[in-house]
């Protein structure tokens, strides 16, 4: 049996001091002795927990972050929307979103011309000619001045899946840093992130023409994918695995034999996290995988740990470090 002062001190030590093993045993014994003791302990601890001022840090910054996340998550949730409602209505939504992010990311004075999707989000919009564009995480789409049914030119950084309204007389052009894609009415995917090793275009339906900045022209048939090494611009034409190429449009994360560095970059964009790794052991690793159910970043990292010689630890808010660890 211990006296009042003793258990009071034990609880205070537990909350805010150095509790020895003996102290802890003593406290547990006292708490388990009577229900009243347990209640008193829990109530005092509850008061302790409630009186902290610590949680208010970085409130504004956090709110900004959530806003970004939330508005885009919400926006990406409407796959069935577009078909159901007149394109005009969707266009309005597109315009509103466009202007929102124009203010945040570009700050331009002109009329709505740019759309931006932050990391961790995906977005869909309909252009004035009826073309539907899905934008993947961390992507920007800029419309040419006076974009209209007659004048269809856009500039893309990042990844977009285009369903272009057919119009033989007025070709639709997607410009990227390294190549332009010209079509008259097709479905295709373009991925051109500045930091990726490879950039590519994949055709689902119809026909596209691709012009590189080195004046080379390529024609793609449905199901084909052309990739370029970003540095050398060396082309590789292949039959694409369509499922994995455009899975992101439906909120799935599928990848097929991609280098570790590209996987990491895709995960960073998809989840809006920072993934750090050092060492050359990772360079030779190649990954294929499917995440279909909006797994959390924790689950994805756990899957990496289970399947490859990797371990991870959390360093900071939304920042993880990957470690090479042979099994």
């Amino acid at each position: 049996m211990i006296n009042t002062t003793e258990y009071e001190q034990l609880i205070a030590r537990y909350l805010n001091g150095e509790l020895s093993k003996e102290d802890e045993a003593e406290l547990i014994r006292w708490v388990s002795e009577k229900p009243e003791n347990k209640t008193l302990f829990l109530e005092v601890k509850d008061t302790w927990d409630a009186s902290s001022k610590n949680g208010a840090r970085e409130m504004e910054q956090l709110l900004q972050f959530y806003r970004k996340q939330a508005s885009h998550k919400q926006n990406s949730r409407f796959p069935g929307w577009v078909s159901g409602i007149a394109a005009a209505a969707v266009l309005v939504v597109g315009l509103v979103i466009g202007s929102l992010f124009q203010n945040n990311y570009f700050g331009e004075q002109s009329q709505v011309e740019s759309f931006s999707v932050p990391m961790g989000s995906r977005s869909q919009l309909t252009l004035a000619d009826g073309t539907v564009v899905n934008l993947n995480s961390d992507s920007h789409l800029k419309l040419c001045k006076n974009f209209s049914v007659q004048n269809r030119q856009v500039t893309l950084t990042g990844e977009g899946y285009f369903e272009v309204t057919a119009d033989k007389k007025h070709p639709f052009t997607v410009k990227t840093d390294k190549f332009d894609v010209q079509v008259t009415g097709t479905k295709f995917n373009v991925s051109s992130y500045p930091n990726d090793k490879k950039i590519n275009a994949t055709l689902t339906e119809g026909q596209i023409q691709l012009f590189t900045k080195h004046n080379k022209t390529f024609k793609l048939k449905p199901g084909e994918k052309i990739s370029f090494n970003q540095q050398t611009m060396e082309p590789v034409l292949e039959q694409a695995d369509m499922e994995s190429e455009v899975a992101w449009v439906n909120g799935k994360f599928i990848f097929n034999e991609i280098p570790f560095s590209d996987l990491i970059r895709r995960l960073e964009r998809w989840y809006d996290v920072k993934l750090i790794y050092k060492g050359s052991e990772f360079d030779s690793m190649v990954y294929s995988g499917k995440f279909l159910n909006q797994e959390t970043i924790w689950q994805v990292l756990d899957a990496l740990v289970l399947t490859s010689p990797i371990d991870y630890r959390k360093n900071n808010f939304r920042e993880f470090e990957l470690l090479y660890k042979p099994k």
Partner: peptide
Amino acid sequence: ETRLFRALS
């Protein structure tokens, strides 16, 4: 310790 406990109570 005593003071902290009493303050919380």
